[in-house]
Design a protein around this nucleic acid. Structure first.
Lengths: 225, 225
DNA sequence: ATCGAAGGATTGTTGAACAATCCGTAGATT
DNA sequence: AATCTACGGATTGTTCAACAATCCTTCGAT
């Protein structure tokens, strides 16, 4: 089931870098992780996945190495890899990273184009809310915070942030059960964005910090039940 | 030559986690990278390394995946992996990350034990300078900055910082040619540490920020020649 | 000198094999 | 009955060998 042989028709034709098989496997697993098909704590058996995706065990192994480096899965030596299951400490830790990076990025401000990208993410969130699409709402929220970090124009910070956001999706699925989860933060995003647009990045940073604290409490509460 | 069969005599005896072969290969390569045996831009041929270390090509591959995720090596598809060669943009980017993380960590302050660890790193640097040991000086400097981030008590930030510091070693070997490179910053470290001990983390953070800016300029200059 | 076609080398991927390790179960011991 | 031990099955860790795909170089043709 669900092979990954979806190579664009132009494969090999143009110099469009064709991702390696291992990379495609990692991508597929990442997708299932984000989508919630694979739930935290679930075991990933090498042979099973290799068969399902029609690839070799060694290739699956390489994909696992990549996902493990992103903390999306955990390796238990000689026992297998499991979908990362995050505890209360992990939630706090992830938010610590976010506070460090996002708030610093916000204080640095951004170019008009960068600010426009933040604004675009806010509007994207509004549209998703209007359409009642929770999945899109979550994505928009990630775009919002990604855009904030992107203002720093640092490739390394961007990848760090991308990984953190991917990690967050793991425990978000439980939270998303509450359909109002994201809509709740739309006013915050709007206010933060307005402060940024008004040329007051420090105020925006303070608002963002408050938002992160509240978001952490909220998520911890949902998680605790 | 230089195999990695140095398994502790107690292997299998106690429950001391024996690192996998792939992990040991990665460690050995990391060591050679930090030591300067492998210079930036150098190509790492799978078969050669496999033979040298007496392991399988697949295992080398897994080690490569790990090092690539740490940005210590770069994969050029179908061409091989090369020791990461960092340009001016990379230097700036790495320092951007350091400014974000280290300065934020500093402003948060730390427990007495955490501060003591920072102090210990400063003294370690002084001893290295007195002994004229550049290598030890570099290590002490890394301990200093690692201890600063450790104050945040965030596992994720610690690993991020560890990776960034490992990355820095790559272009430091060129800089270390100037034997005074590290000694130059000893007074800074001392001043920063004193401010921290005096309960003035914000002042310490400002000093640290100035230090990072100066350090970046310095490294960029050395790199430019 | 430019271009294109072999040739060799290296990577990407597969498949199979085997040792090492873990886990659950069934028996033996107290 | 509870604990311990030994056994067996299953899965991972690692190796090996093979092959296709791709790149780089060299050589030759235009």
């Amino acid at each position: 089931m669900a092979t990954i042989d979806s190579v664009p028709a132009s494969a090999g034709r143009l110099r469009v870098a064709v991702p390696s098989v291992a990379e495609r496997v990692a991508r597929e697993l990442r997708r299932q992780l984000a989508e919630g098909t694979l739930i935290p704590g679930a075991r990933l058996t090498e042979s099973t996945i290799a068969e399902d995706l029609g690839v070799s065990r060694n290739t699956v192994r390489e994909a696992f190495a990549e996902l493990a480096s992103e903390r999306l899965v955990v390796r238990h030596p000689n026992r297998g890899v499991f979908v990362a299951s995050l505890g209360a400490e992990d939630i706090h830790d992830v938010y610590t990273v976010r506070r460090f990076i996002e708030v610093s990025a916000m204080r640095g401000g951004g170019s008009p184009e960068d600010v426009a990208a933040v604004r675009a993410a806010v509007e994207e969130g509004k549209r998703a809310a209007a359409a009642g699409d929770d999945e899109a709402g979550g994505t928009a929220n990630q775009h919002f915070h990604g855009a904030i970090v992107a203002m720093a124009r640092s490739p390394r910070l961007n990848t760090i942030m991308a990984q953190v956001l991917a990690e967050m999706r793991l425990f978000f699925h439980k939270a998303t059960a509450d359909a109002l989860f994201y809509q709740r933060y739309l006013p915050d995003n709007e206010a933060i964005c307005e402060a940024l647009e008004a040329g007051e990045p420090d105020r925006a940073a303070d608002l963002l910090l408050a938002y992160l604290d509240r978001s952490e409490d909220n998520l911890a509460a949902v998680h605790g039940e």
